[in-house]
Amino acid sequence: MKVVRYAPDLHRSSWDGFVSAARNGVFLFQRDYMDYHADRFEDCSLLFLDGQDRLRAVLPANRQGEILHSHAGLTYGGLVLAQDSGQGEVLALFDSLLEHLPALGVGELRYKCLPSIYHASPSEDERYALFRHDAERYRCDPSSCLAPAGFVLSSRRRRGLGKATRAALDVRESADWQGFWQVLRSNLASRHDAAPVHSETEIEQLALRFPQSIRLFGCYAGDQLLAGCVIYDSGRVAHAQYIASTANGRDCGALDLLFSTLIQSTFFQRRWFDFGISSEDQGRLLNEGLIDFKESFGAHTIVHEFFCLRRG
């Protein structure tokens, strides 16, 4: 198996075409998404070709010192596989990847797995390869998801929904990224001493590049935004990338109406609705209030796993 470092002028078209046809490709692995933060990460993405120079896998990756990350700037990562690749071939891919690390000037691989709900067809071949290479799992985050087809509101959420209905709130898609970002920044600063990963400019640019996949929805009282959610729609999964609410919105059930609408109507045809992770400190600290909110919609845990492999 030949390992080739990604070069935009040579590989961009074949990379994007391969990701689109892969059994575990998502739009975050397209170059128009990955390259938005190219100034913050040293891209070290890899392509894997067989003896007939057929592209069999790609690895979104960046280099940081002597560590290869898959990819530190993306929510998910890991090898993106051809539809007809088998377990034996994936073992060979890992062998080739590890053998190639010294040529990249790195001695350690930090590998994050794509959760199985995002797979178009079963694609956990990498988990077995990681086991075979004695990879160390160093991080594990709980993410809360549910199947819209089986969605049933809890009594607590029904009470919130009743408040929102009596207040005559309505849910609609929005292009007011700056207005939502003001609410989001305030929420993250006051509740978590944090800031959004994306700036307003970055998320607007990404939404323009992927208008069907990155969408903003708000719950309003007239023209006043009370709560909002940025959805990353990968086709099988609608993922809540950012969630925020004003104090007034929390008082009148704005998020209850917002998520009820998104799950039961807007994204009802999706296989899964993913609320995202509820942990800090590399997964060792559980935000119990946050995960309780998500579970009150009927969501339950899947995990995001991170592994480390070292040469020698």
Score class of each variant (00 low, 15 high):
Tyr138His: 15
Tyr118Ser: 03
Val152Asp: 06
Gln205Ile: 00
Arg172Met: 02
Ser143Ala: 12
Thr165Met: 06
Glu124Met: 14
Arg185Glu: 07
Val197Thr: 00
Ala207Phe: 03
Cys113Trp: 12
Leu188Gly: 07
Lys163Gln: 08
Pro196Leu: 09
Ala195Trp: 12
Thr201Gln: 07
Pro211Asn: 04
Gln182Ala: 08
Leu109Cys: 04
Pro148Leu: 12
Arg156Glu: 11
Leu130Cys: 10
Arg110Gln: 14
Asp170Tyr: 08
Ala135Tyr: 11
Ser190Cys: 10
Arg191Cys: 10
Lys112Arg: 15
Ser143Glu: 11
Ser190His: 09
Val152Ser: 08
Gln178Asn: 08
Ala167Gly: 01
Ile117Phe: 10
Leu208Tyr: 07
Arg166Asp: 14
Asp170Pro: 01
Cys140Ser: 14
Leu208Met: 07
Arg139Ala: 13
Arg185Trp: 06
Asp134Gln: 09
Ala149His: 12
Arg127Gln: 04
Val152Cys: 03
Ser174Arg: 01
Ala195Asn: 14
Tyr118Thr: 05
Gly162Tyr: 04
Phe151Lys: 05
Leu206Ile: 00
Ala149Ser: 10
Gly150Asp: 03
Gly160Lys: 02
Ala168Trp: 08
Ile203Thr: 02
Ala194Gly: 10
Arg127Phe: 14
Gly160Ser: 10
Ala175Gln: 13
Gln205His: 09
Ser116Arg: 15
Leu130Ile: 07
Asn187Ala: 05
Arg132Ala: 13
Ala194Tyr: 07
Tyr128Lys: 03
Leu206Phe: 04
Pro211Glu: 14
Asn187Glu: 06
Pro115Tyr: 05
Pro142Leu: 12
Ser143Ile: 02
Arg157Asp: 07
Arg172Cys: 02
Phe210Gly: 02
Ser143His: 13
His119Pro: 04
Ala207Trp: 08
Ser199His: 06
Ser121Leu: 08
Arg166Cys: 00
Ala194Thr: 05
Ala189Arg: 11
Thr165Ile: 01
Leu109Arg: 13
Leu169Thr: 02
Glu202Arg: 10
Leu161Ser: 02
Arg132Ser: 13
Cys145Ala: 13
Arg185Leu: 01
Trp177Arg: 04
Pro122Ile: 15
Ala164Arg: 07
Ala195Met: 06
Leu146Trp: 14
Phe131Asp: 10
Asp141Ser: 11
Gln182Tyr: 09
Leu130His: 06
Arg137Trp: 03
Ala149Tyr: 07
Ile117Gly: 15
Tyr111Ala: 08
Arg127Gly: 03
Ile117Asp: 06
Pro211Gln: 08
Cys140Phe: 12
Asp141Asn: 14
Ala207Leu: 03
Gly150Asn: 09
Leu146Asn: 05
Leu206Thr: 01
Phe210Ser: 05
Leu206Asn: 05
Gly162Leu: 07
Phe210Ala: 06
Glu202Cys: 03
Gly150Thr: 13
Ser186Tyr: 05
Ser144Arg: 15
Arg166Ala: 13
Pro142Thr: 09
Cys145Lys: 15
Ile117Asn: 10
Val183Lys: 03
Arg209Phe: 08
Asp134Ser: 13
Leu206Cys: 02
Ala175Glu: 09
Thr201Ile: 11
Asn187Thr: 05
Ser174Gln: 04
